[in-house]
Design a protein around this nucleic acid. Structure first.
Length: 454
RNA sequence: GUGCAUGUAGCUCAGCUGGUUAGAGCACCGGAUUGUGGUUCCGGGGGUCGCCGGUUCAAGUCCGGUCUUGCACCCCA
């Protein structure tokens, strides 16, 4: 055999069993999105490079998959020989790219909103479930091609939207039975802290350092900030805040007082108080945590930021998002605020596999298998099969009169719960022998009785 | 993008300081059992030891490169 074929690094094939599980996740999420009145859209896999560039920070730009058009490729080819070489080896000269694979669904959505503004009634609640691509180095739970399930509402400043998104998160993970913690913070609060310690120009450095707190510890964070040029006094004031431990309520009271004289910070705390105020009167099963160390790198977030992590599984966040006040502004439509979160279908899959959370019954795609005993039986069965399908029951007939052992094994492997055996006797009596594959019990019944039981 | 590991049958892994035709369990196929599976017994197929090169009389084993997967940094779903 020739060299085995392969797929690019960080991409995966999905087998039937994997697709059944993935569909289970995606359908669950989709149903909940619809339950809250969100409408689906799709956008192209490729966008103009200018649409994506500069929206995700410097790190993000590096991770964009850039694509060259054939036109620009051929227009600058030299000799016939060079042309051949480049064609065969897909060899591209360094040249300005024109397009890129989408990096997330939020920026294309902002572009969509601006482009279709006249057809959209605001607030616009949309969901979008599509793959995205990042030229990142793969690791566990980190792929170069993965699915995001986005829900956003754009064109409304109301904090009710933040609350609704958290309800959705709660519903999704409750349904999927994933043990989780919803971390909530607000960029304005982070900015307020910078205001409070008098270092607003160092806002980015401060958030990046705070973000690492549970990873590298307070001393290293202080060290890092000192290197950035923060004064000793500022660092001490920051430590005072970071050292505070307590419940969400205690943290809110503490910070509220701390930031009462900052402009943006006070604003942020008002938002936090309002959001938690709503959430406390709703029944949310997920653990919620007001987490000051949550920063999130994506440049466009301006208000609430949200991240969900799975308990007991080391895989990073399984859902994340926040409010972006002016993402549409860069496309020429200012003052349209949006907020949304994105569920990582692939990571959710990994968590559910590790924790064994896929319900057994979701794995069977066929409900009834007709055993094939020969030509006469085949003809008889085909009619019965048709009747079950007409009743909406997933049914198949084994395509050849193979040994019973093989046919039953086939049912086992596909986790088909019921098998129907029809031989000479059954045909004469006009009944079916129905075998329950779990208990092994067999019962004779008519086709209508079987339909009724399914 | 930087550093460190990893790779043997479809899957999980043995294979000692280099030494005959590279093994096991599970899975698959066939038989015991011509209409009864998921438990038993017997038999069978399947590997260019990730790929390329080097050292050696001899390489799965040592060396270099490359790719894959994973870990840390970074960032994130």
């Amino acid at each position: 055999m020739a060299q085995k074929p392969s797929i690019p690094k960080g991409t995966r094939d999905f087998s039937p069993i994997e697709m059944v599980r993935r569909s289970y996740i995606i359908n669950t999420i989709k149903e909940i999105f619809k339950l809250y009145g969100y409408q689906q859209i799709e956008t192209p896999a490729i966008e103009n490079l200018s649409t994506l560039l500069g929206k995700y920070g410097d790190e993000g730009d590096k991770l964009l998959y850039k694509i060259r058009s054939n036109k620009s490729l051929f227009s600058q080819l030299g000799t016939e020989k060079e042309r051949h070489i480049r064609k065969v080896y897909n060899f591209w000269l360094p040249q300005k790219s024109e397009m890129a694979l989408r990096f997330d669904l939020t920026v294309p959505f902002a572009r969509y909103v601006v482009q279709h503004r006249n057809d959209i009634t605001f607030p616009f609640k949309r969901y979008q479930i599509q793959p995205v691509w990042r030229a990142d180095r793969p690791q566990k739970g980190r792929y170069r091609e993965f699915f995001q399930c986005d829900v956003d509402v754009i064109g409304s400043h109301s904090l009710l939207n933040e609350v609704e998104l958290i309800q959705i998160i709660n519903d999704v993970f409750n349904k999927l039975q994933i043990n989780n913690v919803i971390k909530i913070n607000n960029r304005k609060v982070l900015y307020g802290i910078a205001e409070y310690i008098g270092e607003t120009e160092k806002f980015t450095e401060i958030t990046v350092a705070i973000d690492k707190l549970d990873k590298i510890g307070i001393e290293k964070v202080k060290e890092e900030l000192s290197v950035c040029g923060l004064s000793k006094k500022a660092i001490d004031r920051l430590q005072q805040i970071l050292n505070f431990k307590g419940t969400n309520e205690e943290k809110i009271i503490f910070l509220d007082k701390m930031l009462e004289n900052t402009e943006t910070g006070k604003n942020g705390m008002d938002e936090i108080k309002a959001v938690f105020g709503y959430l406390n009167m709703l029944s949310i099963f997920s653990k919620m945590e007001f987490d000051l160390t949550l920063a999130r790198g994506l440049d466009y977030y301006t208000g609430a930021i949200i991240e969900v992590i799975a308990k007991d599984v080391r895989i990073g966040s399984i859902c994340g998002g926040g409010r972006y006040d002016d993402l549409t502004g860069v496309f020429g439509l200012p003052d349209v605020s949006g907020v949304g979160v994105s569920f990582g279908a692939d990571r959710i899959y990994d968590v559910m596999m590790e924790k064994n959370l896929f319900p057994e019954e979701t794995l069977s795609t066929t409900q009834v298998l007709f055993i094939n005993f020969g030509k006469e039986e085949e003809k008889y069965c085909l009619h019965q099969v048709g009747k079950l399908r007409a009743a909406g029951i997933n049914t198949e007939i084994f395509p050849e009169a193979a040994k019973l052992k093989k046919q039953l094994n086939y049912a086992n492997n596909k986790k088909i719960p019921f098998v129907v055996l029809v031989g000479e006797n059954e045909m004469k009596e006009n009944v079916l022998t129905v075998k329950d594959m779990n208990s092994g019990q067999q019962t004779k019944m008519t086709i209508n009785e079987l339909k009724f039981r399914m």
